[in-house]
């Protein structure tokens, strides 16, 4: 640099450029990063298009396969818990428990739900205790090594109507009544499917033969179901006096089973509301601070003055 300075004064002034500008410019000229990025971008774009197309094709093929069976898909019913922040209707859960106890429990177990789970959801503690005491539970062994029967406690799970799955099969024409603890999560359509299935029994259409001991239900995959229609008008009575029509019972038991499958449902929606409120507050604060901090940078003016 010293030699350059000695050549001419004019040249030095000309060469005097801010050091940062020099380094930036030289990076732009020397670097091959930009070209590499372009090629990579094209490749990634191509990959995305091909992958998306393949996924779409697979989805379409899968859908066409689904459309080939003769299952009637359920409609979406206007459940009172459909909204983003809508809780389950707990009066309906309580009625649904009555339906389960009086109708479904004859064949279906709910082995993951205990009587204590009802407390604060559909029953008070003493009511749940009374419900539990109404059943007999096999316990033991006692001091002599014998099993014995005792009244149920809050910590006991709902009783199983059969001693094991084989007993359940043989009592039901070889069809195993599924455990209902997680049934709405385990079936496509969830509570809509349960409602449709329970209210959807009808005569088989012309040409459809249903084997002896099976029943026709268009919502059941395959159409022939081992369960007979269980809900008829006035098949039981609600303790709160609600008219026990078959659709009312189907709606209540579907709500009850929805609760059983997702006991955290209400808490989840409550937390969603809280999280949205909290994060919108934090977003507003963050946005304000960003604007505040950047206001200096955004409104500044940079002037380049050649050195005289």
């Amino acid at each position: 640099m010293a030699t350059v300075g000695r050549v001419s004064r004019g040249a030095t002034t000309f060469l005097k450029v801010s050091p940062s500008a020099v380094s930036l410019q030289s990076v732009a000229n020397v670097s091959t990063l930009k070209n590499g990025l372009n090629g990579k971008k094209t490749f990634l774009g191509l990959l995305g298009v091909v992958g998306g197309g393949a996924a779409g094709l697979a989805f379409a093929l899968n859908e066409s396969v689904k459309a080939s069976d003769l299952t009637l898909h359920t409609s979406n019913f206007p459940w009172s818990h459909n909204g983003y922040f809508s809780s389950l209707d707990h009066a309906s859960i309580r009625r649904g428990y009555e339906v389960y106890k009086n109708v479904c429990a004859a064949c279906h177990s709910m082995k993951y739900i205990a009587f204590r789970n009802l407390i604060g959801v559909s029953h008070t503690e003493s009511e749940a205790k009374a419900e539990a005491e109404a059943i007999q539970v096999k316990d033991g062994p006692d001091e002599e090594g014998n099993m014995f029967e005792r009244p149920g406690k809050l910590s006991d799970y709902f009783p199983n109507p059969y001693t094991n799955d084989e007993a359940a099969r043989s009592a039901n024409n070889g069809a195993l009544p599924p455990d209902l603890s997680y049934i709405t999560s385990a079936r496509h359509g969830g509570e809509n499917y349960i409602f449709s299935l329970l209210t959807g029994y009808c005569d088989p259409p012309a040409g459809v033969q249903v084997r002896e001991g099976l029943y026709y239900n268009p919502y059941f995959p395959g159409g022939a179901i081992g369960m007979a229609q269980a809900l008829y008008n006035e098949v039981m009575e609600y303790s709160d006096g609600t008219p026990a029509t078959s659709s009312q019972m189907a709606k209540d038991v579907a709500t009850f089973l929805k609760w059983a499958s997702e006991p955290e449902h209400d808490q989840r929606k409550r937390m969603a509301l809280k999280a949205l409120m909290m994060f919108s507050l934090l977003f507003a604060i963050t946005y304000y601070i960003k604007r505040h901090k950047w206001s200096v940078l955004k409104s500044r003016k940079i002037a380049y003055k050649p050195v005289k």
Binding site: F85, R270, M277
Partner: peptide, 15 residues
């Protein structure tokens, strides 16, 4: 406030 909003939305449905 948030529990109040939630309970107001779901008036009559909660235990």
């Amino acid at each position: 406030v948030s529990d109040g909003v939630f309970e107001n939305i779901n008036q009559g449905k909660l235990w």
